[in-house]
Simulated assay, not measured.
Amino acid sequence: MADAGALRRTSGTYGLYAALACLGYLLTALGAILPELREERGLPRGEVALYPSAFALGLMVVGIVGHRAAERLGRFALPSALVALVGGAGIMAVGGGRAGAGIGALVLGLGGAGLVQLVPAGLRVLHGGDGTVPIGEANAVASTASVLSPLLIGAALAQGLGWRAAFAVPPLALAAVLLLTRRAVAPMSAEAVPDAAGERVPRGFVSRWLDLVLAVGVEFCMVFWAADFLRSVKDLGSGAATTFSAAFVLGMAAGRAVSAPMVRAAGRPDRLLAVAALIGVTGFTVLWTAPAPFAVAGLLVVGLGVALLYPVILGQALAAWPSQPVRAAARCALASGVAIGVAPLVLGTLADLTTLRAAVLVAPFLLFVLLIRCGWRLRTGSGL
C-alpha cells in the first residue's frame, strides 16, 4: 500500500477529490428527498425505491461499457461525467412527474458512474501503488460533502422552502467551478486504456468485486432509507428526520478522514474490514433498538463502521487487476450499480410487504455476510 506520508497532493488530486464531492452530495441528497417524493406523489416505498434503481441502472451501463467510452472521450471523459451528474440533478429538480424524476436519476447515475470509474483510476495514475490512501481521502471528501445535503435540505424543509434548490444548486455551483478552472481532468496512462485481448479476469478481483457489492449495498440501504426510518419508525418530524439522517454520512466522513493511519495500523486489509463490519453491526443494534436520541447516535456508529469498507475494498480490487486499471474501475462501478439497484429496492419492497422496521434488517445481514467472507480469508490466508 502507498505510504500516506509520501503522498504528494497536487492541484489535480484536489480536483479529483472535488469532483467526487459533487457525487457524494447528490447521493445523500437523493436519499434525503425520497420521503418527500413519496409524500408529494403518494407513492409506496417499493415504487419510490425505483428512483435509486434508475440511478443504479446508469452505474451498470457505465460499468459494462465505460472503459470504452473513457478511451474515446480521453481528456473529456471526466468533464462529460460531471456535466451528466449535475445535469441529472437539474432534471430531477425541475422535471415534472414520475418520468422526469426517473430520467433525471438515470442521467445522474450515468455521470456518477463515470466519476466512480475515472476518479480512482486517475488517483492511482497520479500517486501509484494500490491507491488505497488517496482513494480513501477522496471518499472522505465526498463523505464530508454528503453531510451537507441532508442538513441543507432539512433546513429548507423546516423553513417551508421545499427541497429542490438545496438538492441541485450546491453541486451545480461546485461543478461549474471545476469545469471553468479545468480541474475536472482524470489522468490516464497510455497503456491503461486499451483492452488486453483474451485476458481473463483475475479470481482475486472477482472476490473483491463481490465484497464491493455487499459493502455498497449496506451503505446505500442506509443512505436512501435512514431519513424514512427516523421519520416512520423513530417518530421524528420531516425536517428533523432529514437533518438527523446526516449522522450516518457524518460518521462515514469521520471514519474516512482517518483512513490512512487505520490502513497502516491494520496490516492485513481483511482484518480492518472485519473490525469495520463489527462496528457497523454494533451501531445498527443501537439504531434498531433505542429511542430517537440514542438511535441517531447508533446511526453515527453505523457510518463509522461502514466508512472504510468501500475505499479499502476498492483499492484491493483495483490492485488485483493491475494490468487493466480503467477496465477494473468500470467493473467496480458495475458492482456499485448492482448493489444500489438491488439492495435498497429489496429493502423498500420488503417494507411495503412487512414494516420498514423489519425490512431495514437487510443492512446488517449484508454486513454479516461480508464479515464471514473476511473471517474465512483471515483463517485460510486466502485472497479469495
Rank of each mutant, 00 (worst) to 15 (best):
319 A>Q: 10
343 A>S: 14
335 A>F: 05
236 L>A: 12
61 V>R: 03
307 A>R: 01
125 V>H: 12
138 A>Y: 08
378 L>K: 06
381 G>H: 13
311 P>I: 07
189 S>M: 06
6 A>K: 08
228 D>I: 08
233 V>F: 07
157 L>R: 10
64 I>M: 15
95 G>A: 11
64 I>F: 14
353 L>C: 06
349 T>L: 13
306 V>I: 15
169 V>M: 03
73 L>G: 07
371 L>K: 01
228 D>F: 02
98 R>F: 13
188 M>H: 12
91 I>T: 08
137 E>W: 11
76 F>T: 14
157 L>T: 08
20 L>F: 15
287 L>G: 05
267 G>L: 08
95 G>Q: 04
89 A>V: 05
145 A>N: 09
162 G>H: 04
274 A>V: 11
59 L>P: 08
50 L>P: 02
53 S>T: 15
379 R>A: 15
232 S>G: 00
314 L>V: 14
223 V>G: 02
1 M>D: 07
9 R>W: 08
87 G>D: 03
297 A>K: 03
82 L>F: 01
20 L>Q: 15
218 V>E: 03
161 L>T: 00
128 G>H: 08
53 S>E: 03
356 L>C: 11
335 A>C: 09
186 A>V: 11
379 R>L: 14
21 A>C: 13
71 E>K: 08
384 L>A: 14
255 G>I: 10
233 V>L: 09
337 G>K: 00
25 Y>N: 05
26 L>D: 02
310 Y>I: 11
151 L>F: 08
196 A>H: 13
